[in-house]
Design a protein around this nucleic acid. Structure first.
Length: 202
DNA sequence: GGAAGGATGCACT
DNA sequence: GTGCATCCTTCCA
C-alpha cells in the first residue's frame, strides 16, 4: 500500500482547530488492521476546543484518564466509547497540553468495502457504511485499543492527502448531539462536503 | 462500592 | 419521523 501521501506531523500541530477540521475534509483515513486494508475519504468533521467550549470533554480543566489523550500533541488519535457501545474517532490537534481535537463523523468508503460490510453488518448502501461516527470506526476496525496511537507514524491507522477540496464545497453548520453544551452548541463548528451522500445528517 | 450519564444507531410505525 | 436499547467511564460516598 502507498504511504507517500501520509499527512506530516506539522499538519496536526496548528493552533487553529477549526481550520484543521476544514482541512481534513477530502483527506483519506486509512486503517490496516487484522491484515485488512480499508480506507475512506473524510466528508464530515467537527471541531472541539479544550478552552471555552462546553461541548469538549476536557473543557475548563476537566482532566481525567479518558480525556488525557486529548492533551497530547497534535496527530494523536483519541478514541473513546460513547453510550457504552459506539467508538468515536478524534484527531488531536495543537501542541501538547492543549485539549483541541477534531471529531471525524463520516467517511465516503473507498477501499475494503467487502470487509466493511462484514464488520458493520448492515443492509444499507455502500455510501452509508461510514455515515456516522459510531459506524465509521466499526467499518474500519478501529476500537479503543487504538486510543493514543500517533497517526503521523503509525503503520495501522493513518491519514493521507487525497482530494483537493475547494472552500466553496465546504458547508459549516452546528454540531450534533451536544445539546448539553448550551450556547456552545450553536457554534458553526461542524463541516461537511456539500451534496455528499456519505454525510450522516443534513 | 454504587449510581448516573453519554459527541448514537437501529428497529419499528 | 419517533422511540429506546445498551454498557463503559466517571464521580461521589
Amino acid at each position: 500500500m502507498k504511504k507517500g501521501n501520509k499527512l506530516k506531523a506539522s499538519f496536526y500541530l496548528s493552533d487553529d482547530v477549526v481550520r484543521v477540521a476544514q482541512d481534513l475534509l477530502g483527506k483519506k483515513l486509512c486503517s490496516h488492521i487484522d491484515g485488512v486494508y480499508t480506507s475512506g475519504i473524510i466528508v464530515e468533521t467537527e471541531a472541539y476546543s479544550g478552552r471555552n467550549d462546553k461541548a469538549c470533554h476536557a473543557h475548563l480543566g476537566r482532566f481525567t484518564k479518558r480525556t488525557s489523550t486529548m492533551y497530547q500533541k497534535g496527530g494523536t488519535a483519541y478514541i473513546y466509547l460513547c453510550y457504552g457501545i459506539h467508538h468515536l474517532f478524534n484527531v488531536v490537534t495543537n501542541v501538547e497540553g492543549i485539549a483541541d481535537a477534531v471529531l471525524v463523523r463520516a467517511l465516503m468508503p473507498t477501499e475494503g468495502l467487502d470487509e466493511m460490510h462484514s464488520r458493520v453488518k448492515t443492509k444499507q448502501a455502500d455510501y452509508k457504511l461510514c455515515a456516522g461516527p459510531g459506524k465509521l470506526t466499526k467499518a474500519l476496525g478501529i476500537n479503543k485499543v487504538r486510543n493514543g496511537i500517533y497517526l503521523a507514524s503509525s503503520s495501522d491507522t493513518w491519514i493521507e492527502n487525497d482530494l483537493d477540496v475547494h472552500a466553496s464545497e465546504i458547508v459549516a453548520t452546528t454540531r450534533i448531539g451536544i445539546d448539553y453544551a448550551e450556547e456552545d452548541a450553536l457554534l458553526p463548528w461542524r463541516f461537511y462536503l456539500k451534496g455528499n451522500k456519505s454525510v450522516s445528517k443534513y
